[in-house]
């Protein structure tokens, strides 16, 4: 079966002044439907860059990237915009909710952008908000919610478009440890329901909640689980 997501020999460098700094070296990664993978690495290891490339928000310098059969490495800017809307559910460390919109408006945005009529969008969004226990907060502004609640809203927003993959960037980074645990438990439940999740974290305890851990160090990916240290210092 064709994997959901396949990265082949991805390289990426940035120019820092006159210097060219390479952040990703020959990254290859395959994600199948139903996977729950944590990409774990220290800050500066290139994981955010990798996340941006997987999330169709940045392009690689070389290499190939297929998402649901689409050749992302050949896609135009407009095509990438559509791919983001169609296939990817983003969950950000800082939630990234629009402060002026209420919870419902935030959650239905991906559907509205897709062109789904408002009525249908609200129906789907209500369902997702109910799943995350946020339905009674539908008409609150994000600023009226706690961090954990805001992250639940952002998860609802990620789920609403029925994406191929949930892409979580340090989803517990801004939360206290108990709320963080709740969110991770939620991820496991979502994964059990059949959602594919790719999570990026610097925290090994967070990574361990995933089914599979991939380490990234200095822009190189290490996928063999048996070589991973249990608790890196």
């Amino acid at each position: 079966m064709e994997p959901l997501l396949r990265l082949e020999q991805i390289n990426k460098s940035y120019s820092l002044g006159s210097e060219q700094v390479q952040v990703l070296f020959d990254i290859s990664l395959t994600v199948n439907r139903g996977d729950f993978i944590a990409i774990q690495g220290p800050s500066g290891s290139g994981k955010s860059t990798l996340m941006n490339i997987i999330g169709c928000m940045d392009t690689a310098d070389s290499g190939r990237y297929f998402l649901s059969g689409e050749a992302v490495h050949e896609a135009t800017d407009a095509r990438m915009t559509r791919l983001r809307n169609q296939y990817i559910g983003f969950i950000f460390q800082k939630y990234q909710l629009v402060p002026k919109y209420d919870v419902l408006q935030n959650v239905i945005m991906p559907l509205l952008i897709r062109g789904v009529p408002r009525k249908d969008a609200i129906e789907i969004a209500s369902e997702k908000l109910r799943l995350l226990g946020m339905r009674d907060r539908m008409h609150h502004k994000p600023s009226e919610l706690s961090g954990g609640q805001q992250q639940r809203v952002s998860i609802a927003r990620a789920l609403v478009g029925d994406p191929a993959i949930l892409l979580a960037d340090e989803p517990t980074g801004a939360l206290d440890s108990r709320t963080g645990q709740d969110v991770l438990k939620l991820f496991q439940e979502l994964n059990d329901m059949g959602n594919t999740i790719l999570m990026i974290t610097h925290d090994p305890t967070v990574g361990q909640k995933a089914k599979q851990i991939v380490r990234i160090i200095d822009g190189r990916l290490y996928t063999r689980q048996d070589t991973l240290p249990v608790s890196p210092s």
Binding site: G55, M57, A78, T81, R82, R84, N85, Q86, F90, Q96, L97, V98, P99, K100, M109, P110, I113, R114, R157
Partner: peptide, 12 residues
């Protein structure tokens, strides 16, 4: 806000 909308797939 514009960044969020673009990440969610809002076109130019």
């Amino acid at each position: 806000e514009i960044g969020i909308l673009k990440a969610l797939g809002s076109s130019r």
